[in-house]
Design a protein around this nucleic acid. Structure first.
Lengths: 232, 232, 232, 232
DNA sequence: GATGAATGAGATTTCATTCAT
DNA sequence: TATGAATGAAATCTCATTCAT
């Protein structure tokens, strides 16, 4: 998924790459690509396990079964690795914006909402740690922060457009509503992902869909959802 | 606000409890209490400014205009100080659970929701960094994590009880709905607090109240909110 | 036993006592003497438990149920307290030198040796930690080191005199033999005291007396000791 | 002499085993082995010069002409380095147990004793500081303490076996006698080593051999030793 | 390309000693 | 006399990054 060249992140970094070659863009041969992938995978896992700050280059290197020296052949520093992963995650998340069509207040609309939430949930889950770390103010890197902001804004706008098409837009500012919706989904998914709460998947998606449909898209909650719950 | 004695955590040293150890409970005199307060305040600010990880004991000490040694007279380490602040924050947040009465689907209900959200917003804002840091898995301390969990659960239960009284309970599991609601408020507030998004306060509260009322409490969005928006 | 005035040790220390009064010689009233005794007793115990280096003033102070400030009212520093205890111990040990009369090669001689070893053992035991710490090169204080040296020399000379009176003096240099004897007794007692070895008291004294009598005083090991062992 | 891998102790950190942790066993290349040796040698010297407690990692590092970071690449802390040296010393000392054959009461026996004491003296001297520090209870590490105990016991047993073969066994318990003998040699050597006493080497060995032979092995002190002394 | 080794700035923590009441 | 509070110099340890094969 990542198609970046080696050490892309540092290209625009504050201090130009020193002496050697680490952070220079260069095309990689087969072996090089394999090593890079090992490092990215290891990074994913390590950031997942320990969080951005607690993660040590050494952890990544050991997990990837390679050496410190090699790491810096591919990434100019820890942040650079993180950025590579984060950009990947962002691209995936950005895709969600296009996946949502107009939402009707009826059951069909609720179904559409549910389907979209499911996609959101799955994409987020795959990249949760990375997203989490970047969401926080902790990664001070402005570049990444700005990109995250841009993503958030873009998703919110696309969502706001859908909201605006509905009655609900009378009650709440669509932009605010859209951000609230994203906030809710993001946080809820995070809580599930980090095992702080735990629910059965279908039930969870049903409920999220219900409140989202009713709260943000003016949905009238009738029919199916009610019946579903009764059946249980 | 904080009524804890000096030091909270277990000493945790390798051998027997050390000397005049910082982490032992001791009664403080006037001067001692003053110094402790200075340190707590400084901690609050420093964690706010730099985040948990970037914060150094040195920063706290400098801000409190005291010495390293003194710091360790009151807290056994950075985490211990953080815990003190976090417990404070938790206590405040926990108070919110009792502030919410039954919510009707009419305008009065929406007003009640708005008032509650406002309180949530204000309390959260006062402790945002601390809450944020503890919310993230970043602070590894399990004790604190467990306390946070407990707080979340308790708040969710109280909220769920209110939701259950309404029609909306048919559409979504009250527990899930309650957690979604908290997730939304928490994250939205955080985004505002961290300057990632920015809105005019009243507009923001109105909109949050509207979606919350409609989405979680089965509120019918009529009357005032609609007129409000039109007037703008 | 200790009749020193407050802070005697520091009198000849390198840096003269600063500002206040801590290390000045002064006569103590009843309460003062009581406090001093508390500190000395506490010191004895703490040095015993943790060894000189690991012992912290704080430990002493806590054990004596008094304060840091008070400690420095009576002793100019940790070493000063130690010295007070050590001098006490030395005085007691020095007394041993006079307790040994001429040793005959017969059973009576062996009995005399045994009685003396017993005294040695008991005196040493009462002050073992302090003696141990001072024996080591670790306490760099030259003053104390010199005093220890003097004590060793004096004891050795008195012992050598007794050895010289016997036949054994032909085989070994009395001075060397005397020091060997003290070395043996000191170390053996230490091993017992520190629980590194463990024997029944009478058996231990019998055996030590036997080897000492035979090895250092030319004793012929006949009679009683042999019978004793057989009887067992 | 030392064949240990890098780091010996358990990591002992509070959480999971840290990064490229120093205390993990790793195979070393030529350069690594060289550095490790430099550190061991430096440690030997520094412990010698300043004693265990006064020795700072910084001293070792400076003497080895390397960096702090490097030190922790090879040893997890000061104690770990010490342990490495101590184990080395123990191994050497343990070897002494096998070097002592049966002791006859005649002059040949005394010569054998003398030769053995000489070996004891030399081995001990080479490792005196390390042995001393470990002998004292000062190094709290229980593992090392237990190893020391084991060594002492083993040496004592081998010595006791030799004593048991002689007449002297009637007069004293061989186990106690053996330990007394070791105590004497250890302490005497230590006193010499630490410059607290000083003798001409041959004279010292002659005398020690004489008292040892007579006291522990039932030696009759006739002939040579007497003549030797007269000749002086 | 790859690697093990080295570095050193920086953060944390301890504790003997002094101060102010 | 007594005390709790404060100090700060030292010591330990970590880890991102660079170097030399």
């Amino acid at each position: 998924m990542t198609s970046r060249k080696a050490g892309s992140g540092a290209a625009g970094g504050k201090s130009a790459p020193r002496g050697g070659a680490p952070a220079q863009e260069r095309e990689l041969r087969a072996q090089g690509r394999k090593t890079m992938r090992k490092l990215l995978d290891a990074g994913q896992i390590v950031f997942e396990q320990r969080g951005y700050h607690a993660a040590r280059v050494d952890d990544v290197v050991r997990m990837a079964k390679t050496s410190h020296g090699t790491f810096y052949l591919y990434f100019s520093n820890k942040e650079d690795l993180f950025k590579a992963l984060a950009e990947d995650a962002m691209a995936q998340m950005a895709g969600l914006g296009n996946d949502l069509g107009p939402i009707t207040p009826d059951e069909a609309g609720r179904e559409a909402v549910r389907a979209w939430i499911e996609r959101f949930f799955d994409v987020y889950s795959k990249h949760s740690t990375v997203i989490r770390a970047w969401t926080e103010g902790e990664i001070v890197d402005n570049d990444l922060g700005r990109q995250g902001q841009k993503l958030l804004t873009k998703l919110a706008q696309q969502l706001a457009a859908r909201i605006e098409e509905t009655d609900a837009a009378d009650a709440a500012d669509p932009q605010i509503a859209a951000l609230s919706c994203l906030a809710m989904l993001e946080r809820f998914t995070y809580l599930v992902q980090s095992r702080q709460i735990s629910f059965e998947r279908d039930e969870m998606l049903d409920s999220l869909a219900a409140v989202t449909h009713a709260g943000f898209f003016g949905g009238a909650d009738a029919g199916k959802s009610r019946r579903l719950r009764r059946a249980r």
